[in-house]
Simulated scan of single mutants.
Amino acid sequence: MRFKYYMTLLLALGAPAVMAAPADDIRASLDKLNLPMQVQTISESPMEGLYQVQMDSGRIIYASADGKFLVQGALFDVTDGGLSNLTAAAEAKTIGESLNKLPREEMVIFAPEKPETHVTIFTDVDCGYCRLLHSEVDELNALGIEVRYLAFPRSGASGESAATMESIWCAKDPQEAMTQAKLGNTIEQASCANPVANQYQLGVQLGVQGTPAIFLANGTLVPGYKPAKTLAQEALANQ
């Protein structure tokens, strides 16, 4: 079963016969579902009676104390200044930490000499907006932004796009291969142990539904293309 980002889901589950600590009941309910994600932490949420369940993907769901009900969706704090999305803030923090720990050697990176911050982009070589964004990588670098690419072939972890991306990751010069592929040129086929399938699955777990999916250094998601100057401003403001 796959959770979709920001879609509210209410599940009625069988309550345990004997009440235990909330975390135990919640974990037992989730174990029944055989989710593709693992529970990382369970803690009280800012809303009384509602518990926050942090998944290893970075996503958050909420649960009643007895584990009988689960809710997926955004929890907002109503203040005098308007609404504050508590769920998005908590998810971004964990996602940012997770992405920032990925090995650099498993990414295709375009970096200026002295980067001020970075963006991590799930990309597809056959995506028109990905190609447009890549044409502005030099401008992003000039503005102090390091671009870190992860593979997200939209047709899945197998097929022509995935094969092309595997060749990029296995190329002698991955940066040049990425550029040529995004120009629509044929690149030399290459094979090796590569992270393309794992990166695709990571994107699925993070709720990536299209490309480019741009994550700023603090984990904030920027869905879709933005011009280099606008993206650089947002990246510098969300380190």
Rank of each mutant, 00 (worst) to 15 (best):
M1Q: 04
M1V: 03
R2V: 07
R2C: 06
K4N: 08
Y6S: 12
A12T: 03
A12N: 06
L13N: 04
G14Y: 06
P16Y: 00
V18L: 09
M19E: 14
M19Q: 13
A21H: 15
D25E: 10
A28S: 10
D31N: 09
K32V: 10
P36V: 02
M37D: 03
M37K: 00
Q38G: 10
Q40A: 01
T41M: 03
T41A: 06
S45M: 01
S45A: 05
Y51W: 05
Y51F: 03
S57W: 00
G58E: 01
I60R: 07
A63H: 06
A63Q: 05
A63G: 05
A65Q: 01
D66H: 05
K68L: 02
K68V: 05
Q72D: 13
A74Q: 14
T79N: 01
D80S: 09
G81K: 04
T87W: 08
A88E: 15
A88T: 14
E91F: 04
A92H: 07
T94V: 00
T94N: 04
G96S: 04
N100G: 00
K101P: 06
P103W: 05
I109F: 08
I109L: 06
F110H: 05
A111C: 07
A111M: 09
T120D: 07
T120N: 08
T123A: 10
G128T: 10
Y129P: 12
C130N: 09
C130G: 10
N141F: 10
A142N: 13
G144H: 03
I145E: 02
E146G: 09
R148H: 08
Y149K: 01
F152A: 02
P153Q: 03
R154F: 09
S155A: 13
G159V: 08
E160P: 12
A162Q: 11
A163E: 14
S167Q: 04
C170Q: 01
P174F: 00
P174N: 02
Q175H: 01
Q180F: 09
L183S: 08
T186R: 11
Q189P: 15
S191M: 11
A193N: 14
P195K: 08
N198H: 13
Q199C: 12
Q201F: 15
Q201I: 14
G203D: 14
L206S: 12
L206N: 11
G210D: 14
T211Q: 12
I214Y: 12
A217L: 12
A217W: 11
A217K: 11
G219I: 11
L221N: 11
P223L: 10
K226A: 13
K226M: 14
T230W: 10
A232D: 14
Q233E: 15
N238F: 09
N238L: 10
